[in-house]
Structure formats: structure tokens, C-alpha cells
Simulated scan of single mutants.
Amino acid sequence: MTKTVLCYGDSLTWGYDPVSLRRHAYEDRWPSVLQAALGAAAHVIPEGMNGRTTAFDDHLADCDRNGARVLPTILQTHAPLDLVIIMLGTNDMKSVVAGSAFAACQGIGRLVRLIRNHAWPFEFDGPDILIIAPPAICATGNVPFAASFPGGIEESAKLATLYRDLADELGCGFFDGNSVAKTTPVDGIHLDAENTRALGRGLESIVRMMLGL
């Protein structure tokens, strides 16, 4: 039976292109690359939104970016699920949102609990969970982005260690996005096409293992 994978993330999952300020080509986005790698064995659902946080409100947005508030509806929409991949936390580094890696880690914990305690329809079993530490913020000459993430370089560098420990504590899978991809200095936050493809390729092995493929 085909496995179903939900990729829950922000602009790195949506496929924001920092050069064109549009969206990467479909085939370049990491969920698409993962889908191509897994083939017919799995159905990969991309659920990325620009600016999404783990569990915090962004009052400057014209949509709901609070990942914890939106997640239960998305889980219900796509059930049954075999695996939920969470890659969030970068936007939590914004000073107007939370501003710290510790807060982002707490938010990831909240998302895991929401998945584990969700009232799945028709008594479906809950999915496994894979937590990804997003590639760390890097230095940039882009003034608006740099101003939005004061201290973000230092704080985002802490995410991998915090997320790894959290995954161990909660019995989730873990993958360090920094191991295969780097953010671009164009804006310090996003991935160019080469790096978003690399993320999709890098995830194939652990996703196959977690799905039993």
C-alpha cells in the first residue's frame, strides 16, 4: 500500500526563490525531489507556507502563520498519514515572533504533542514524526531580512542540537538540514535551487527507513 507523507513547513518547504522572489520550479522543491526519489511507494504532500512559525502568532501577517493552530485541520484533511515531516523554526527567530531557538524548540514539542494526541478519524493509527532542523541563517547584505532576524545567526545555529535532543526525548526521527544544505547570502534565510534539491535527496534514506520501504 502506498505510504502518505506530510511535509509541514514554511517558505523553505513552499519553495521561495530568493533570487526571483517567486517560487522555485516544482521539480526543484525538496518535497518534489523526495517524491521523485520515493516513486510510487509514497505520496508526498507539500504543506509549506511563507512565514509559518512553530506555535506563535505573527501579527504582521494577513493570514494565520501559527503552525500549532493550523496543524490539526491539516492533519484531519490529509488523514490517514504514515509520516509527518516537520521543518519549522526559522521564522520563530524573528524578534516580533519569539526570537530564540529555545522558543522554537518548545514550539516543535507542541506540534509533536498535537500530532500524537490528534483525534484521528475512523481510528486511524497516528503517523511517525520526523523533525528537521532547518539550515541555519547566514550573514546577508539584505537589510530588511537582516533587520527582521537580529541575533538570528547565533540562535538558529542552536536549533540542530536542541531539535536532536527533543527528538530523542519524544521518540521522533531527526535530520539535520545543515548536513546537506546551506542558506544563501542573498537574503540569509532561504535556499537556492541547488540546496533545496540537496535537501530532498538527503532525506530519502531516513524517510525510506521510517516508512519501512
Rank of each mutant, 00 (worst) to 15 (best):
H78R: 11
T4R: 15
D187I: 00
V70F: 01
R110K: 14
R164D: 11
T53C: 10
L38E: 01
L211I: 12
S95C: 11
Y163P: 03
N50P: 01
I86C: 02
A193S: 14
D10W: 05
A79K: 06
G15Y: 01
L75E: 06
F175L: 11
A98D: 09
E47S: 13
V84L: 05
I206F: 04
V44Q: 06
N91G: 05
S156L: 11
H43L: 14
E155C: 09
A160G: 08
G152R: 03
P121M: 09
E47Y: 10
I153C: 10
D58W: 10
W120A: 09
T90C: 02
A103S: 14
A25N: 10
T90K: 03
D168G: 14
G89V: 00
T4G: 03
R201M: 11
S179E: 15
T2L: 15
L203G: 05
G151I: 13
S11W: 04
D17P: 06
Q106A: 10
E154L: 12
Y16C: 03
T13S: 08
N50Q: 12
M87Q: 13
D62A: 12
L114Y: 07
F124K: 06
W120N: 11
A146M: 09
S179F: 08
E154C: 06
A103D: 14
V44T: 09
R197D: 04
A133W: 02
V96P: 00
N91F: 04
E194A: 15
N66M: 09
N142R: 12
S20H: 08
A98E: 13
L203R: 04
L199T: 03
I74W: 10
C7P: 07
D28Q: 12
T196L: 00
G39V: 08
D64L: 12
P18Y: 02
A198L: 10
M1V: 15
E123W: 06
N66V: 12
W14G: 00
L213K: 02
L213N: 01
L12G: 00
E169W: 06
T161L: 13
I131M: 04
M93V: 12
R116L: 10
T77C: 11
S205P: 07
C138Q: 03
T13V: 08
A68R: 07
E47Q: 12
R201H: 14
G109L: 03
T73Q: 11
A37W: 06
A41G: 11
A61G: 01
S95V: 14
I45H: 10
M1Q: 04
T77M: 12
L114V: 11
H78N: 15
T196F: 00
R164G: 08
F145W: 09
I129D: 03
I131K: 00
A104H: 09
Q35I: 14
I153A: 11
V186R: 08
L12H: 05
D58K: 06
P18F: 01
L12Q: 08
G39L: 02
M1F: 07
A193I: 04
P46E: 11
F149T: 02
L75K: 05
F56W: 13
T13E: 02
N50T: 13
A41I: 06
Y16L: 10
S100V: 07
S95F: 11
N91R: 07
